[in-house]
């Protein structure tokens, strides 16, 4: 069964100006072991697509006009709030752009990790390596053990000690590692990463990308990576979907799309990235490639 199957997703958002359609028929299939890059510029709707998968768009402002999002065959858009809570964190992990605001500054790193682990453990003790029906004392012990293991796995040195630290004692890259650990603790099948490296330095970015890459190889999960950076896509993704104004213009394997882009927009985007080899005057912006749609 396809891990994630988005079919003809149409979303509209309400604001002061009235209702505007944001997503126009998004189609996307993510299988286990695939890293999908969703690239687009500001306002292309890539983040809203990611949030839709976890159904995190407030129902007061967002309305789905048509389409379905099937996660392991179940339609997320029709699921109850209770079902969604078991999906989020357990089956679908999420990482966001800003590692600073996504950790609570008043709790220790360990407390926050154990919390997540316990939540996952209560729903399914096997996540923590326990038999179903394990006592809450065992759960707590296992949650602590798994938290340290996970922190160690994402590359935090001396995890058993650092678990007692507060978020401000961690650097930006380390906080992002903690968030990845948090997202992975429930052993999700799908990881949604929304600009996970945008706020980080390039050297740290390379490490985080490697971490995500290794996690996919080890656990055979699917990843939906939302980014504006085609360089990141080229490095780590197996597949890519190019978004523009709420539509997917082109999608397929990274080798096909980035090597032989069929859409003018993708070509224009590739021509606008300065690399270590771009000569003066070679860069091109969009320059009227795309018709202005208002």
């Amino acid at each position: 069964m396809t891990l994630l199957d988005i079919k003809n997703l149409n979303l509209s958002m309400r604001s002061f100006e009235g209702e505007t359609q944001i997503l126009h028929g998004i189609d996307l299939q993510v299988e286990r072991g695939e890293i999908w890059g969703m690239v687009g510029e500001t306002g292309s709707g890539k983040s809203l697509t990611g949030l839709s998968v976890s159904r995190l768009i407030p129902p007061a402002t967002g309305r789905y006009l048509a389409g379905s999002i099937a996660f392991e065959g179940r339609d997320v858009l029709k699921a109850s709030e209770k079902e969604m809570r078991t999906l989020r964190g357990r089956k679908i992990g999420m990482i966001f752009q800003d590692p600073t605001t996504n950790l609570n500054p008043v709790f220790r790193i360990g407390t926050q990790l154990v919390d997540v682990a316990l939540h996952a453990g209560h729903a399914d003790p096997t996540v923590l390596g326990l038999e179903p029906g394990a006592s809450s004392r065992d759960l707590k012990k296992a949650a602590k053990r798994v938290s340290v293991e996970m922190l160690d796995k994402v590359g935090i040195p001396k995890a058993a000690e650092r678990i007692h630290d507060y978020p401000h004692q961690f650097s930006g890259g380390m906080k992002q590692r903690v968030l990845i650990a948090m997202a992975m603790i429930g052993k999700p099948d799908l990881l949604i990463a929304d600009e996970p490296t945008t706020a980080l330095d390039v050297s740290v970015q390379a490490q985080i990308l490697k971490l995500i890459h290794d996690l996919v190889a080890e656990r055979n999960i699917g990843v939906l990576m939302i980014t504006h950076n085609l360089g990141v896509v080229a490095q780590i993704c197996s597949h890519v979907a190019v978004m523009y104004r709420g539509r997917i213009l082109e999608s397929g394997s990274v080798m096909d799309v980035l090597k032989r882009p069929s859409h003018v927009y993708t070509q224009a985007l590739l021509n606008s990235i300065p690399t270590a080899h771009t000569k003066r005057g070679e860069l091109r912006g969009l320059g009227g490639v795309m018709p202005e749609v208002q």
Binding site: V202, S203, Q205, A206, L209, K210, H213, N229, L230, G231, V232, V233, A234, Q235, I236, V254, M255, L258, K259, L270, I273, T275, A276
Partner: peptide, 13 residues
Amino acid sequence: DAMPDPDPDRSPF
């Protein structure tokens, strides 16, 4: 080395 290049062939992975 860490600079992400949009050419998939240059990906370290």
